[in-house]
């Protein structure tokens, strides 16, 4: 097993943990952290799987940089919304879904 493959498997594990976190955790801040874990896992898979030889492949690295920018923007938006939500309701958990 090459080191690249180890990174990829670690990334897949992180991604799975992140998905579980986003789905199962109610606390909004921890949910945002879980989303970031998920994103990092995907990035690790992207860089790890592409690592075929000793020389680094620049294309996935460029993609990961772009992906990090997107993740930062999404996190900022989520944090902004959560702050507002906390300010309005004083809670850190979303209410149980009510459709009507």
């Amino acid at each position: 097993m090459t080191s690249g493959l180890i990174f990829a498997f670690a990334g897949a594990a992180l991604f799975a943990m992140g998905v579980a976190g986003v789905l199962l955790i109610d606390h909004l801040l921890r949910r945002i952290l879980a989303f970031n874990l998920m994103g990092s896992g995907a990035f690790l898979v992207l860089v790890g799987l592409a690592q075929r030889s000793d020389a680094a492949d620049p294309v996935p690295q460029a993609m990961v940089l772009t992906g990090i920018v997107v993740a930062v923007a999404a996190t900022a938006l989520a944090l902004g919304l959560v702050r507002r939500f906390h300010g309005l309701t004083g809670k850190m958990e979303l209410p149980v879904a009510d459709d009507d």
């Binding site: 990829a8 990334g11 897949a12 991604f15 992140g18 998905v19 989303f35 998920m38 994103g39 896992g41 995907a42 990035f43 898979v45 992207l46 790890g48 799987l49 592409a50 294309v59 996935p60 993609m63 992906g67």
Partner: peptide, 13 residues
């Protein structure tokens, strides 16, 4: 996120 992981696997393959 799921879509991105799919892209990562495609690039790896």
């Amino acid at each position: 996120g799921a879509y991105l992981l799919g892209v990562a696997l495609i690039y790896g393959a």
